[in-house]
Design a binder for these strands. Structure first.
Lengths: 215, 215
DNA sequence: CAGTGGTCTAGACCACTCT
DNA sequence: GAGTGGTCTAGACCACTGG
């Protein structure tokens, strides 16, 4: 392996270039950069792909070309907002396969999709759900309509790669890294996939609690 | 763009192959797969790279070749453990540049690096830190030695790409997606970078609190 | 030394979008 | 139609590791 791969050098050059350009300006096409920097298009693309993953460049199709990403507005979402289903969202899709009822919706902020929320429920526990569900926040709907009481929940968070389907919903390329938040309680199994470049998960910690439960 | 890119098909084939192989088995070399599947090595590599990012394959250098990743043990870490610096870790490195004191350590579980922890402090606030620091958990050291009181903190979590330096510390390839946890209080500014394939962040949520603070 | 993964090249075709 | 990004190929060289 070369000490410094050429695509690193390319990336550095492109970052310089990026520093001078305001958001939404067109970025030079790959073939031109390949020519100017004296590297093959493949090498340039490798550098550009990292910049795309980092949210610095936005790729368009056809004649749109690549553009400089505007300073990204990062939305801060708390676990509560995700669990309570309080983020603004597009209409939910309801699917039933055997006894599993799946509710899926796209989280939206400012016309941009920032995440996808999925919840699995026990179908027989909620008769007529598909007909009665009115797109209010899911937990509120369940507690008012079916008198559900939710217990404490355990949530965890990790990084995954967007499947082709999720990528389409989120407006990113397949295999883009995303933030995955999951939780589980007596009633539901849910997870939210967030665009890492558009959303942060905020957490509170109360000082003084829990000095020693490592594991 | 083809309806189904060939590297998707390759990935599916490789996943089949993976299903039959136990952990730590050598995986067929790229050139052989390229031959058998009738695709160019570049295409095979694109498929394999995604499997590496997903933690299914492990690449070695030279004659080691690629091997099947053993069932990954995922360590669950709480925010408290990260903040209180209670994860087992390698010796911390202390750097001072101007008035900023940086403490950095590698989090280890079972001989594997799973994360990197960095804390920035105001150097003049902690005279003689470098000489006195004894590798106990950072917060405990600060509170016993310097009588520091920590206030409440605000933490947040997102996905980033590993810089070449972090990648080396974590034993992953540069630009691997990682889980980034940051927090801020009156005393410190800290962040932890976790290998997404080796560590999850656990969160608790108390039921009933906070019905409506969306934003 | 042989074989591995990592990088790089020059070229090709495709689907798409703007003009 | 021209130009863009997305994909794919065949081939090359390198650094590294094991027998």
């Amino acid at each position: 392996m070369p000490a410094i791969p050429r695509y690193y050098q390319a990336k550095a050059r492109l970052l310089d270039l990026l520093g001078d350009l305001p958001g939404n300006t067109p970025f030079p096409p790959e073939r031109e950069l390949s020519d100017v920097l004296g590297m093959s298009r493949t090498t340039i693309r490798k550098a550009m792909n990292e910049l795309v993953l980092e949210g610095r460049l936005i790729r368009g199709t056809g004649r749109q070309g690549t553009t400089v990403a505007p300073p990204k507005q990062v939305h801060r979402l708390s676990l509560d907002v995700l669990v309570q289903d309080l983020a603004t969202r597009e209409q939910a899709a309801v699917r039933i396969t055997r006894d599993v009822l799946t509710v899926e919706s796209v989280l939206v902020r400012g016309d941009e999709p920032i995440g996808v929320r999925s919840t699995c429920l026990c179908a027989s526990r909620f008769p007529g759900f598909a007909e009665r569900y009115d797109d209010t926040p899911l937990r509120r709907f369940l507690s008012t309509t079916y008198r559900v009481r939710f217990g404490d929940l355990r949530a965890w968070c990790t990084t995954t790669l967007a499947t082709p389907r999720l990528a389409r919903l989120l407006g990113v390329r397949p295999a883009t890294p995303v933030l995955s938040v999951s939780w589980l309680d007596l009633v539901e199994r849910s997870w939210v996939v967030l665009r890492g470049d558009r959303a942060h998960l905020t957490m509170a910690q109360v000082q003084g609690s829990a000095q020693f439960h490592a594991s």
